[in-house]
Nucleic acid binder design. Structure first.
Ligand SMILES: [Zn+2]
Ligand SMILES: [Zn+2]
Ligand SMILES: [Zn+2]
Ligand SMILES: [Zn+2]
Lengths: 158, 158
DNA sequence: AATTAATTGTTATAACATTACATGTTGACG
DNA sequence: CGTCAACATGTAATGTTATAACAATTAATT
């Protein structure tokens, strides 16, 4: 689950970084060095990263690297929508478009752990009726689909 | 997360139990004592149970109680649709209607951890187009919504 | 009966996450 | 400025969830 290549899963990391800065400034949030660094780590990774992967990166970058350091930064980043947690992998991923309100929706490959965030804008609406009937007040919807990515599906056939 | 009351989250446990027996007989699966017991434990619980909760129950019932015992039984039960895993709680729950093909969909209360399985039959279809575009072959869709149950939502207001 | 496949027993360890408390930093207010 | 409260970080220890690895047993197949 380590970062292996130079490819980023997010197209323009610096762009997202700037959005995060602006958001924090606007809302009086402290975008501290650790928080900034963790977001950079995730933006620079081609794969999702577990908390302990992030700790290793922090360690290499000269930060403190006990578990709470990573978990606290991740909690902040997730809370404010810069990062999502992929609950099936106990791993984290920087969001492409943290400025747009959305329910995170992922496709996860069972073979290679590739994770793709797809747009879910029109979907959560359809849940509303189902949940309203039961009197449940929904705050967050998490949708994760497991299966095979194009590459891995191809391998099986061949 | 222990079983506290006599209420079952599944209406007719013995009914589900029978369905599981029939399914296993029909498909040549071994519905062994541990597997049966774990399903009974989950059917008898009013709440979702973690693997280690189940181990405690197994221990009390005179079964072996090392982690793999529970995890292997749960893997079997999940694989064949008798049990679902609630990934947000790392916990397991017996399914009400294992005979009907469906994607599990849950509502989870952030306050009291109440978990309600709701019917999702019409919904996964709407995902198909989104995922097909990306060439992803979906095998399983997990939908979990977090929020407040009626009871807990009421408390907040008062 | 012999062979193979599936399941279980058992030990150990890996992987993920939180508690608790001390220390430091920041910003508001008098 | 000095004080206080709120927020953030440092650190050690522990708690929780899940799997690896291999031996032993049991069930199905030939
Ligand atoms: Zn996102
Ligand atoms: Zn793949
Ligand atoms: Zn179900
Ligand atoms: Zn509740």
């Amino acid at each position: 689950m380590e970062d292996v290549g130079k490819n980023h899963r997010v197209q323009n990391p610096s762009d997202v970084m700037r959005k995060a800065e602006e958001y924090c400034a606007l809302h009086g949030l402290q975008f501290t060095p650790v928080r900034r660094k963790v977001l950079e780590i995730l933006l620079g990774s081609s794969q999702v990263l577990g908390a302990y992967d992030i700790l290793k990166h922090l360690d290499h970058a000269g930060f403190k690297s006990q578990p709470p350091v990573a978990y606290r930064a991740l909690e902040f980043l997730v809370k404010h929508g810069f990062v999502h947690k992929v609950v099936h992998l106990n791993a984290f991923v920087a969001c492409d478009h943290p400025d747009e309100e959305h329910a995170p929706m992922f496709m996860i490959c069972n073979e290679c752990d590739l994770v793709v965030e797809v747009d879910s804008n029109p979907l959560p609406r359809s849940f509303a009726s189902t949940t309203k009937n039961s009197g449940f007040h929904v705050e967050e919807a998490v949708i994760e689909m497991k299966g095979l990515c194009t590459a891995c599906a191809g391998m099986v056939v061949s």
